[in-house]
């Protein structure tokens, strides 16, 4: 104790200096904005490096758990290999519309084959007429659209992707503007929406939905967001570039949609 006091006494000027210097640092950092910014930046660099080190260490601690997750994933993928056989189980899921009468039936499906990437993409799903698939039924993913059934066989169906130059989907916006969605064969992330009246103001980032007018897709399925709009001179209409919410060419899990009212609605076709 006496030694400590002696050291304190002998170096009293140093300790005074150190204490006052700390006080000055406190004042500098708290009352001068440029120095404050530098101090905050430096502190964040230090804490950031410590944090990344701890995250790295924790990553090693979680390795067993991660391993288990990967193993389950592999097991799941193996069960989907072609040699695991054709799945005959049919999971049927339904949504009810506002009238509480069943209208759309969702049928789970897996994409089993695809055409090579081209301006006219098609794909094959493992559901066919024996499960109730028919021409003109829509196919959606867990989000976004995939395509429209074109040729069903007993156990499989060929689907025209929405990224096919002859595919047409009725799409609309929240403000009841609606038009036709089609693909020009260029960029698989973007589609073009045509026939929107010129006087409507469309904001960038607006969500685009299915309208349900063509009885292919249920109303209100999100397709994507508006990226840009372009007025077509002389036609009174504008075209929108839509950024798709999903990647229709690389989605595996799909739902085939059957519209139970399709035949009834077909009777209301425009009079010729």
């Amino acid at each position: 104790m006496e030694q400590i006091l002696r050291i304190l006494y002998n170096n009293s000027s140093f300790f005074t200096f150190a204490v006052l210097q700390l006080l000055c640092l406190y004042l500098i950092v708290n009352f001068n904005s440029p120095q404050n910014a530098i101090a905050a930046e430096t502190a964040s660099i230090f804490t950031g490096s410590i944090e990344s080190a701890t995250v790295k260490a924790e990553g090693y601690l979680n390795l067993d758990e991660e391993n288990e997750i990967q193993r389950r994933e592999i097991a799941d993928l193996r069960s989907r290999l072609p040699e695991s056989g054709y799945s005959t189980t049919v999971g049927i899921d339904s949504i009810e519309d506002q009238a509480y009468a069943q209208r759309f039936i969702h049928l789970t499906a897996n994409v089993v084959n695809r055409s090579p990437y081209s301006p006219n993409n098609t794909l094959v799903i493992d559901r066919g007429t024996s499960q109730g698939v028919a021409i003109g039924q829509g196919v959606i993913g867990s989000k976004g659209l995939i395509g429209i059934v074109a040729l069903p066989t007993e156990n499989f169906s060929r689907v025209i992707s929405v990224l096919h130059r002859s595919a047409r989907v009725s799409a609309g916006l929240r403000n009841n503007a609606y038009g036709t969605l089609q693909w020009d064969g260029q960029d698989p992330r973007r589609m073009k929406m045509t026939d929107i009246a010129e006087y409507l103001t469309i904001a960038k980032g607006d969500t685009v939905f299915t309208t349900g007018f063509s009885n292919v897709f249920p109303t209100g399925q999100v397709i994507g967001t508006v990226e840009s709009s372009e007025v077509q001179p002389g036609t009174g209409s504008q075209n929108l570039i839509i950024e798709l919410i999903n990647d229709p060419l690389h989605t595996n899990n799909a739902f085939v949609i059957r519209d139970l009212f399709k035949d009834e609605l077909a009777k209301l076709k425009p009079l010729k």
Partner: peptide, 20 residues
């Protein structure tokens, strides 16, 4: 000096160092 220069602490730090 700092009170007049509106750089609270900067001159004080330098002067303290100088005094030491």
């Amino acid at each position: 000096v700092d009170f007049f220069y509106e750089t609270l602490g900067v001159h004080a730090a330098a002067a303290t160092f100088c005094g030491y």
